[in-house]
């Protein structure tokens, strides 16, 4: 048997272990810079989810701090962060949901099962709007101030960082 070949499994495993180690050690797995911060909100055209209120970007320019949340029923982290959104909604923060690429009734099923934290929802079937917002993975959460300017962006589920990040950022945005 070829001498070099037999070392491949060990080598691959070494690389994998290294990857896991770096993965564990990263201090903030979800920190991503966003070019959007400080900019006006990108256009959102309304596309209603059957039975729910909808919104477009003009709503985001109205007074008061609000949250824009990109989600889908097929995304496990969205499910994980859902209770945190419900909490925010209960505290009176208006949350606008952009549902991405959901099939048929899946989105409705998700909301019926877990409850609806969203003040209004728009559907982004083709992923066009997510592209405009620079969304790379679900879920993503944006904080928009009273002028319609994006103040903060968070990629990944927010339920673990409510106290440390989301609430202070809401505060900073003028809530």
């Amino acid at each position: 048997m070829n001498k070099a070949v037999v070392f491949i499994p060990a080598g691959v495993f070494g690389a994998l272990a290294g990857l896991f180690l770096v993965g564990l050690m990263r201090d903030d797995p979800d920190a991503l810079p966003s070019a959007l911060v400080g900019q006006d909100v990108p256009e959102i055209t309304s596309e209603a989810l059957a039975g729910y209120a909808t919104f477009d970007s003009s709503v985001l320019r109205e007074d008061g701090v609000k949250v824009v949340n990109f989600w889908a029923s097929w995304c496990p982290p969205c499910r994980a962060e859902h209770p945190a959104l419900m909490e925010l909604a209960a505290e009176g923060v208006p949350i606008y949901g952009v549902n991405k690429s959901d099939q048929g009734g899946d989105a409705v099923g998700f909301l019926e099962e877990l409850g609806n934290p969203y003040a209004a929802i728009t559907v982004d079937l083709r992923g066009r709007q997510s592209l405009d917002w620079g969304v790379v993975a679900l879920p993503e959460t944006f904080i928009v101030d009273g002028e319609g300017v994006v103040r903060f962006r968070f990629a990944g589920p927010i339920h673990g960082v409510m106290e440390s990040t989301i609430l202070p950022e809401l505060e900073a945005a003028g809530r």
């Binding site: 048997m1 001498k3 037999v6 070392f7 499994p9 060990a10 495993f13 070494g14 272990a17 896991f20 180690l21 564990l24 050690m25």
Partner: peptide, 28 residues
């Protein structure tokens, strides 16, 4: 918990790394 994770990673590294190295030495 990253600490829990690190511990399992160490276990994983010892057993898999060890076994695969042994494999590389003895496979011939």
């Amino acid at each position: 918990d990253p600490f829990t994770g690190t511990f399992i990673l160490v276990i994983l590294a010892i057993f898999m790394g060890g076994a695969l190295t042994l494999f590389a030495m003895r496979a011939d």
